[in-house]
Design a protein around this nucleic acid. Sequence first.
DNA 1: CGGGAGATGGGCT
DNA 2: GCCCATCTCCCGA
Length: 196
Amino acid sequence: MQDRIVSRDFYEADVLSVAKGLLGRLLVHCSEGGRTSGMIVETEAYSAEGDPSCHAWRGKTNRNAVMFGPPGRAYVYFIYGNHYCFNVVTNRVGRAEAVLIRALEPVEGMETMHKRRGKHHQINNLTSGPGKLCAALGIGRSENGLSILEPPLFIAAYREIETAAIGISGRIGISRGKEKPWRFFLRDNPFVSRMR
DNA sequence: CGGGAGATGGGCT
DNA sequence: GCCCATCTCCCGA
């Protein structure tokens, strides 16, 4: 089946709409290990506007520069000395917003993903976290700033999600802005990083 | 099976 | 030097 790649206008919207709208879509990376992909089941929104937990809150720096650029690009950053996190830039140039992809349901390239994650993992521990899914899909430093509007890295239509199937909560792993209901996930999906 | 601590390195004060 | 949008292992129950 042909990929129906999500186009730039989808990302030219406020970060909360995009965060919700990404649920049920397929994140695909084609690289040396072949094609790996998963359905997006958990996202979080970050915005420089009134959100102290956002990397861009204090203004533009080398690390967060991609967030200030055009929508439809990957913002990948390194965290805790071990892990990468993958974000999608939204809205318009100068407006620093991004959606963190927190969990996937594995779809293609299972063998490659297992190999990249190392050791033996249960299937529901393969991509159920922002650091885990980057490792599984082979996303790292060199993908930062890359377009996600065409291969090798893109997001495509996959499943239609009903509003009633979406759960909402505070974001995970931050100290400021915990109370904002900016985390979105598929209720009852076993690949979500944590239930709430 | 739930909680806690250690690993580990880059970014920013 | 401290913080950090995390993961894994190990412990106790």
